[in-house]
Write a protein that binds this DNA or RNA. Structure first.
Length: 572
RNA sequence: CGGGGUGUGGCUCAGGUGGUAGAGUGCUUGGUUCGGGACCAAGAGGCCGUGGGUUCGAGUCCCGCCACUCCGACCA
């Protein structure tokens, strides 16, 4: 491609809307343009990268035996109503009606539609196992689109769905996808970690996230360097640290204390002059239509995902102050478990505490020396807190680390959630009907692209891995008015193309500085500069990721580039 | 959904106390340059987000709306 003819534009200044490196660079390098909040167009240069990522995903899916198809993004409501997700998705689903008033949505994900399709085609155990996939546009009306393409309202996802006869078959299909995902993210050049995750709105029995470590990531992961345990914060199990002597502690007499103006844990710490660990927070939640109380230690954060899973509710939110006052009979800030008439879910750590402080359900008062079982009863005792840096690893007990990550892939064991809801069954050898056992597997294409940039950039711009670079090589004649330079540049350009190398020729009548800056910004892995020594057939060969260049003959440069591209794109 | 901020050429931004628009960059043309975002000159490009109000007169003041953006949505 001749740069003079290319539809692209680089920006010298950082667009005001972009906060993070990948977003800034994608705009500055002219890979994409914003149309509206969370909605982007990909321009030719960006789309080339996009398609290469898609292609890697496609190759690995095919290699894993999955079959590609494509479904509409515009979907009738029925299948989602059957699975219950028409309600579950809530405001996040783009909904619309046709002229006849029938309801549709723009698909946020396609479990229901795949299930429905397989149901109508596949009847026999002989046809299983089966894995299908598509690379298709998804729509989610995000609460808050952010970070460019990292969290957008329209995005492309590779979604795959496996159908098996039994759990053992699912385990094999799942592992197969797991391995394919590792190959995909390896080929994309990403540094990632695989963590256990909650199944969330998808339902099912197990799931793992492929996460790229990054400070701007929105998922929180806890991992153990000692044993390799890794899970996201929604999932990471918390265990109770024993041996602090509480067990032997004598239970003191319950005492009601006037605590005017002390509502928050900070205020209470001041008032009582002790640490947050000696308080138990009582949080009032609305779980669908039911109101419940949940208790965690003063220094802990409640884990809403865990609580939601225990309660089995669809929606979970903190109760408003009106509800809190009605249920506790006190202003917000004085809730406690004693005398409450609603279910009380107690964190396993709180169940081990002795003589702690809770709200008295009376404005301006707290109880001290509270003890579980003597003073109140828990409806359920379970782990409902969020893991923190330094907490013991649930596998080996060593302190865990907590970091942020970008979720680029997610795999789930769905089980029969959708096949039962939509009656997707097969006949086994005995002619008996059984629901298919499903798995589903997603990769965000746009997000993966942004993640690669997050991990591969410097102050000058993007540094693409060769496998997904928009072009492999850029040839820069320093002076386009010099016919010797131009002739050599043209020769290198056409010879590289003849060898199957994707190459740009920066034939613009610009000063060399401008061309170098642009080449660095858009991150082309190999740069061949044709300058003063063109008359001797000598050029400069420079890699984007390295600081220095080497001076070699044009022939050597062509050979070297060809070899490097072959190596960089090779599939192991 | 709650709170804050911002809307002025493609991009980054100026425009006290009201008097119908500027700079830099980018773009076009000519010239001088030519190894890390050159210089000179001449141009093109804006119903100042939108609707209303105040006023002789609104980019500027008042009200509504919209869009974009940041923070929060774990406060007991």
């Amino acid at each position: 491609m001749r740069v003079s003819k290319m539809f692209f534009q680089t920006l010298r200044e950082v667009p005001a809307e972009a906060e993070i490196a990948s977003h800034q660079l994608m705009l500055r390098a002219g890979l994409m343009r914003k149309l509206a909040s969370g909605i982007y167009s990909f321009l030719p240069l960006g789309y080339r990268v996009f398609r290469k990522i898609e292609q890697i995903v496609r190759e690995e899916m095919d290699r894993a035996g999955a079959q590609e198809l494509i479904m509409s993004a515009l979907l009738p409501a029925e299948a989602y109503q059957a699975s219950g997700r028409w309600e579950v998705f809530g405001a996040e689903m783009f909904r619309l009606k046709d002229r006849g008033g029938r309801e549709f949505c723009l698909g946020p994900t396609h479990e229901e539609i795949f299930t429905d399709t397989v149901k109508s085609v596949t009847r026999s155990y002989r046809s299983l196992p089966l894995t299908l996939y598509q690379i298709q546009t998804k729509y989610r009306d995000e609460r808050r689109p952010r970070f460019g393409v990292m969290r957008s309202r329209e995005f492309v996802m590779k979604d795959a769905y496996s159908f098996d006869r039994d759990e053992a078959g699912l385990d094999i299909s799942y592992k197969n996808m797991y391995d394919a995902y590792c190959r995909i993210f390896d080929r994309l050049g990403l540094d990632y970690i695989i963590v256990d995750a909650d199944t969330g709105a998808m339902g099912g029995s197990g799931s793992q996230e492929f996460t790229v470590k990054s400070s701007i990531g929105e998922s929180v992961i806890a991992y153990c360097e000692a044993c390799g345990y890794a899970a996201n914060d929604e999932k990471a199990e918390c265990i109770v640290q024993k041996g602090c002597g509480e067990e032997k502690c004598e239970e003191l007499n319950l005492e009601k204390v006037a605590t005017p103006d002390a509502r928050t844990i900070d205020e209470l710490m001041n008032f009582f002059g002790c640490s947050a660990k000696e308080f138990a927070k009582t949080l009032i939640y609305k779980a669908d239509d039911k109101v419940v109380a949940a208790m965690v230690r003063g220094d802990r954060e409640l884990n809403e995902t865990k609580l939601q899973n225990i309660l089995g509710c669809i929606e979970l939110e903190m109760a408003d102050s009106e509800t809190v006052e009605k249920v506790t009979g006190a202003a917000v800030g004085f809730a406690g478990p004693i005398g409450l008439k609603i279910d009380v879910i107690v964190d396993s750590e709180v169940a081990e505490m002795k003589n702690f402080v809770v709200g008295a359900n009376e404005t301006g008062y707290h109880y001290k020396n509270v003890n579980i079982n003597r003073d109140f009863k828990a409806t359920i005792v379970k782990d409902i807190r969020t893991i923190k840096e330094g907490d013991p690893c649930p596998k080996c007990g060593a302190p865990v680390k907590v970091e942020f990550g970008i979720e680029v892939g997610h795999i789930f064991k769905l089980g029969t959630k959708y096949s039962k809801a939509l009656n997707c069954v097969y006949l086994d050898e005995n002619g008996k009907e059984n629901p298919m056992i499903m798995g589903c597997y997603g990769i965000g294409i746009n997000r993966s692209m942004a993640a690669v940039i997050e991990q591969n950039n410097d102050e000058n711009g993007i540094i693409w891995p060769i496998a997904i670079a928009p072009y492999h090589v850029i040839v820069i004649p320093v002076n386009t008015t010099d016919s010797v330079q131009m002739e050599l540049a043209e020769k290198i350009y056409s010879e590289l193309m003849a060898k199957g190398v994707e190459v740009m020729l920066d034939d613009r009548d610009e000063r060399p500085g401008v061309k170098f800056k642009d080449a660095d910004l858009i991150g082309i892995p190999i740069r061949i500069t044709v300058g003063k020594k063109a008359n001797e057939g000598i050029v400069e060969y420079k890699r984007r990721k390295e600081k220095d260049f080497t001076v070699i003959s044009a022939e050597q440069a062509i050979e070297m580039a060809k070899r490097e591209v072959e190596e960089g794109c090779a599939v192991k």
